[in-house]
């Protein structure tokens, strides 16, 4: 496990892939762009632990904030979700 890839304020996009096993990336935020609120330390990846793999990956988890308007097309609230690093990629310049 290396350094945390993202810092507070970074824009990130969640993966759209639906893996063929347990994961903690909820469907309602897949493919969405959010902003990193803060890193939360490193934790074993549930996708690996649920399959009882001998070597579970350990990754930084981030609180990532999404705007209701992006998720549902309406609403003024925010939803913050805790996500493992491999669920995220940097959002491009066009992703705002």
């Amino acid at each position: 496990m290396g350094e945390a890839r993202f810092v507070a304020g970074d824009k990130v996009r969640t993966h759209t892939v639906d893996p063929p096993h347990h994961t903690r990336l909820p469907r309602y935020i897949r493919g969405q762009v959010g902003e990193v609120v803060e890193p939360e330390g490193a934790w074993p990846l549930p996708d690996d632990r649920a399959r009882d793999l001998p070597e579970s990956r350990v990754e930084t988890v981030y609180a990532v904030r999404f705007a209701a308007r992006d998720l549902w097309g309406e609403g003024t609230h925010s939803v913050t979700v805790d996500l493992w690093e491999s669920y995220l990629e940097p959002a491009g310049e066009d992703d705002t």
Partner: peptide, 12 residues
């Protein structure tokens, strides 16, 4: 009043 929802999906 703005609402912030926290979906605890990990170890927090």
């Amino acid at each position: 009043v703005e609402i912030a929802v926290w979906d605890s999906s990990a170890e927090s």
